[in-house]
Amino acid sequence: MLDSVIVSGIVTIIIGVGGMFAYFWASNWVLDHVFLPAKGEHAGRNINRANQIRPWLFLFPAMFALGLYLVVPVFYSGWLSVTSGVAAGGWYRNYSEIFANDTFRIALLNNMLWVLVVPAASTFFGLIAAQLTDRLSWGNIAKSLIFMPMAISFVGASLIWSFVYHPDIEIGVVNAIRGLFGAESGVTLIDGDIVDSFLLMVVLIWIQTGFAMVILSAALRGVPEETIEAAIIDGANSFDVFFKIKVPQIMGTIVVVWTTITILVLKVYDIVAAMGNQYRNLEILPTQMMRYFDSGNYGFATAISVVIMILVLPVMVWNIRQARSETR
């Protein structure tokens, strides 16, 4: 049993990788030797034409996969959201139904909270951690430990934090700390209150702070020393130097970190599914979408995914504009 699983995995890798290389090699060979050979009376013209076609040979597998797995689904989902199960009630029926649903409104509100809180907190803690560790002899070890949760799956992190939030005063760290301040017995921390979402957000902040720290720490090192020295000579204290000299100069990077985490937050599903699955008040759009998906209600599921896409859209446009201004 074990053997067969491993063998099939290895065979797939060989077929996949070997097949790809074979495709690229063979298609180039055919282009250069069969269709447009670089010899005979049209040699020069053939070389030029071959060079116009070749990029597309290189690009084809990637474009095909991107097209089939991302571009087509975007439009297909949009189409399904206005056609699937709307027989009575017009093309917007799926949307009007989900917006009329209380749970959807809770999910949308929660999603907004996640998007406001998590990127802000992660970037803030990341900035603090970057500044603190930058000057320490053991800074790299500290960074490594703060960065480590990045490797842990959302499900693993959810387990780790469920244990921290454990209702027993002798098991959960949070309750044990309450005990230090005189609490007699533990309390159930996650019980479906709308504010419990913040406890779930802590998990994602814990994961993402390391990411923000690593990038912001590189940016902080790029701040020219002259500006700092000038500020100190003018009598600035450390806080002034940090907030008025360094932070403004790395604002661009802060925005990049912020938006990257925002995108991630909009996709988050695992944490809520693992920690708050039974509570309606903790729902977010992706968990709702998966509920409809699992029950086969494709109309509602695609409508919610389109709503998520619309929330992402501003960041997408901003990203593309940034990238275009760089390549020019």
Binding site: Q52, R54, P55, W56, F58, L59, M63, L66, Y69, L70, V71, V72, P73, V74, Y76, S77, L80, I263, L266, K267, P286, M289, F293, Y298, A301, T302, I304, S305, V306, I308, M309, V312, V315, M316, N319, I320, A323, R324, T327
Partner: peptide, 27 residues
Amino acid sequence: MDFPGRGLLIAVVVGLLVVPLQLAFVP
């Protein structure tokens, strides 16, 4: 490699970076 439409393709790739996976599930 130089070819027409390169800039556009790069922009498309950057755009696709942030497409929510959820959109792809039903299709």
